[in-house]
Nucleic acid binder design. Structure first.
Lengths: 199, 199
DNA sequence: TCTTTGACTGAGTGACCATTCAGTTTTTAC
DNA sequence: GTAAAAACTGAATGGTCACTCAGTCAAAGA
């Protein structure tokens, strides 16, 4: 609302766009200031350094991503745990498709490099992944209660399935494999992992 | 053998090490020349630009990785396709563990960014992934012949399993999850995906 | 109206770094 | 042994870019 926040937000928006499209090193402060229509100095007035801005972008992305998932879950009813899982996978893929560029943020290595020496950055990443994996885990718990799934270590299976889905998104954005071509096979595999037991 | 190749190789080795540990942008030509014990100019004598050196590193890595897998497969006999698959997964995880830093190369975004406008780079990446996925696919074909696996679309399943394994390696290197804690669950999941059929 | 505080500006600074090149050394060919 | 070619050197160059700061502008309170 206050004028100051308006500009700060505009900077954050443009920075998100540019960082996710071109990465940290191929985005200069001048690129961002020009895109936003402010002076270079203004960026440093609001954010003390380029890295701080980059981290603010991550935090902002985290909040939006998590709330997108909350909204989706609140507005949908699922018959069974298995349905919920399928719904969540499909929502994840849809989101990745819709804001492909934004998802690049998470697949860029630079955050993980910063995280190695910056606990705050590490925590943001950790929160993103744990809230997403949590959702998968919830679905599995529900599925186990309603007998649509067999008894498994929900936490580990949730991690595996998340990894799988996220990996597919990565290969998709790198154009090495098309996600939509594999969707049915993916759902089928998740079913096998959770429903049946043969050894 | 010729003296020139000796230095060229030394540069390539050091560059591989530094690029994979610190990434493209956090490694300068001077870092590499100092580590190798040559002058900056020598690097440009052998490689025309920093990017060309970076690509040479990828090519070299590709060759070593592929031959490591060939060797492993040639020196091992597997009873069934399922055993082979398990052996390959386990070898992949072991390699990733052994040369963790080198695997960083593949998980750094910069190559994919170059690949977007450089067909040669794209081809290197494509060759790496397709030869790895091919190995998984072979195992599945064998498994289908010896009846240790059900009939599935081998190519798609191979991709899914590769994605899963590679994703686990990524989370492991980022210290967000430990690969060894999930190994049994992973193998178990692959079995479910391939052996049983319930719908 | 005046003043104080916060928001904003953009030219300037200094550090970094890929790349060049004129010159030196080493190797190879004869 | 010598000449030509190849390998190598490192100081110099030019460009980029994060960050600073002295100063301008705007709003809000008195």
């Amino acid at each position: 609302m206050p004028r100051s926040q308006t500009k700060k937000n505009a900077i954050l928006e443009e920075a998100t766009k540019l960082f996710s499209e071109h990465g940290y090193w191929d985005t200069s402060i001048s690129d961002i200031s020009q895109a936003t229509g402010v002076a270079d100095g203004t960026i440093f007035y609001h954010f003390h350094s380029k890295e701080e801005l980059f981290l603010a972008v991550l935090k902002n992305f985290k909040e939006k991503l998590i709330s997108a998932f909350s909204n989706h879950l609140n507005n949908h009813e699922f018959e069974t745990g298995m349905d919920m899982l399928e719904g969540v996978i499909s929502f994840y893929l849809a989101q990745a498709n819709k804001m492909e560029k934004r998802f690049f943020l998470l697949h860029r290595h630079h955050y993980y490099q910063i995280a190695a020496h910056n606990p705050n950055c590490w925590q943001q990443l950790e929160e993103i992944y744990s809230s997403l994996i949590d959702i998968f885990e919830q679905a599995i718990h529900i599925g186990q209660q309603d007998r649509s799934m067999k008894t498994v270590d929900a936490s580990k299976k949730a991690f595996l399935i998340f990894t799988l889905v996220d990996g597919i998104v990565r290969f998709n954005t790198y154009k090495l494999y098309r996600a939509d071509a594999i969707y049915d096979e993916l759902i089928d595999s998740c079913r096998s992992m959770l429903q049946s037991s043969t050894n």
